[in-house]
Amino acid sequence: MQAVSSPVTNSPTRFVLWGNLISVYILWGSTYLFIHFMTEQMPPLYMVSIRYLVAGALLYGYARLTGTPAPTRTEWKSAGIIGILLLAISNGCLSTGLQYIPSGMAALLGGLLPVYLLTLNWVSFGKKRPSNLALAGLVVGLIGIYLLVKPDKLQGTGDLDSKLIGVGLVAAGNFVWAIGTLLTPRLSLPSPTISSGIQMIVGGLVLLPFSLAVEPVSLFSIFDAPSKAIGSMIYLVIFGSIIGFSSYSWLARNASPQLLSTYAFVNPVVAMLLGTTFAGEIFSSQSFVGAVIALIGVILITLGRK
């Protein structure tokens, strides 16, 4: 994705903005299904770290080969900080938390991200109170997420302590993701493509030693992965990381936090539809109502942005 160098006219800016939003809405919504396929028979932290290392190397190499200037030491440090927050800590917490709680419960907790974004931007980062319409959209969106993932049926099999660990990890991961998102436009970062590459490389390098220490893998276990896991990882590298994450990084620099936060309401809807179509998951009438309500929340937040 291209960074907008200056606000020349409203039309190109609006087109690029919504193009990146749609990319995050659709492509990141599809990653739930492919992460499931990727980690069915392979440890999650290991596969996530390999995914980021491959995607990061491709992005960084492409940026340098096409003439993007080498980042300065300050830009490396800034992009590395964002990579540690978003990809190593946040996604590491999510991947580990999913070992303790059902994925539907994790999706419900993911709906709290807009609350973190708007609240942190209100009380700390931006000191900007969201409009009443945006706050109403948050409430409506959270109700939709609640209905969408059918929490009344998410009992799981683990004990209470395990569930508390899982909930705590996923909630902490979302909180750190919100911090990284709001911190992004406040740091000195290189161009979007090379910045995304650095973030993925650093995130992968931080995650890999943890994986080797706690998971039953070696450095070269990727060569023993089944074809389904490899194919899913290739999809995630191209569409989840290179395209989707680059779009998110651009939005973190150029979109308002409350508009950016709408992806947390749309992604579960996309994930539920794909899961129903390709993984045999049941899309109940309650889930359909939840999806509609979540999208209404997105519309209210969009209309209420200042």
Score class of each variant (00 low, 15 high):
Pro44Ile: 12
Gly280Met: 01
Leu108Thr: 00
Leu133Pro: 08
Gly158Ala: 07
Ile201Thr: 00
Ile301Trp: 12
Tyr52Gln: 02
Leu300Phe: 15
Phe278Gln: 09
Phe223His: 13
Thr13Met: 10
Ile81Asp: 08
Gly92Pro: 14
Phe239Trp: 05
Val170Ile: 10
Ile81Tyr: 09
Ser6His: 12
Ala279Asp: 04
Ile81Gln: 09
Ala255Leu: 07
Val270Pro: 07
Ala264Asp: 05
Leu135Met: 15
Gly61Thr: 10
Gly180Asp: 13
Val115Asn: 10
Tyr46Leu: 12
Gly141Ser: 11
Leu154Phe: 10
Ile194Asn: 05
Gly104Glu: 05
His36Ser: 09
Ala134Asn: 08
Gly168His: 05
Gly19Glu: 06
Gly156Trp: 01
Leu53Tyr: 06
Gly231Asn: 01
Thr276Ser: 05
Ile179Thr: 05
Ile230Trp: 13
Gly244Ser: 00
Ser90His: 14
Val206Trp: 06
Ala134Cys: 01
Leu189His: 09
Pro216Gly: 05
Ser131Met: 06
Gly83Gln: 12
Tyr100Cys: 02
Pro185Cys: 06
Leu205Ser: 08
Ile194Arg: 05
Ser30Tyr: 05
Lys150Ser: 09
Met47Ser: 00
Phe220Glu: 09
Gly166Leu: 10
Thr302Ser: 15
Pro12Ile: 00
His36Val: 11
Ile242Lys: 09
Ser211Tyr: 06
Pro114Trp: 02
Cys93Ser: 10
Ala70Pro: 12
Gly97Met: 03
Leu148Gly: 02
Pro7His: 09
Val4Cys: 00
Leu138Glu: 10
Leu205Trp: 03
Tyr32Cys: 03
Leu27Gln: 00
Phe37His: 11
Val16Cys: 06
Lys228Phe: 07
Gln258Arg: 04
Gly92Asn: 14
Gly297Ala: 01
Leu113Trp: 04
Asn174Gly: 12
Thr72Pro: 09
Lys306Gln: 14
Gly204Trp: 08
Asp159Glu: 01
Gln2His: 15
Ser227Asn: 07
Ala229Leu: 13
Ile101Asp: 07
Pro130Asp: 03
Pro268Ser: 07
Arg14Glu: 15
Pro44Gly: 02
Pro43Asp: 03
Ala294Asn: 04
Trp18Asn: 14
Val298Lys: 09
Ser256Val: 04
Lys306Ser: 15
Leu142Ala: 06
Leu205Glu: 06
Ile234Asn: 01
Ser227Leu: 14
Val16Gly: 04
Glu215Trp: 02
Ile143Asp: 01
Ala279Cys: 05
Ala229Pro: 10
Val149Thr: 04
Ser196Gly: 05
Gly197Lys: 01
Gln41Gly: 04
Ala70Met: 13
Leu208Trp: 03
Leu85Ala: 09
Leu303Arg: 14
Ile145Gln: 04
Lys127Ala: 15
Arg14Leu: 15
Leu27Val: 10
Thr262Asp: 03
Ala57Gly: 11
Met1Asp: 08
Val214Ala: 11
Leu87Ile: 13
Ala55Gln: 05
Tyr100Glu: 02
Ala213Leu: 11
Gly29Phe: 03
Ser249Met: 14
Val176Gln: 02
Ile50Phe: 08
Asn20Val: 13
Ser162Glu: 12
Lys127Pro: 14
Asn132Pro: 00
Ala57Val: 01
Asn10Gln: 15
Ser191Gln: 14
Ser247Phe: 13
Leu187Asn: 01
Leu147Arg: 03
Ala88Gly: 08
Ala178Gly: 07
Leu160Ile: 06
Leu113Val: 14
Leu251Ser: 00
Gln2Ile: 14
Ser232Arg: 11
Asn132Arg: 15
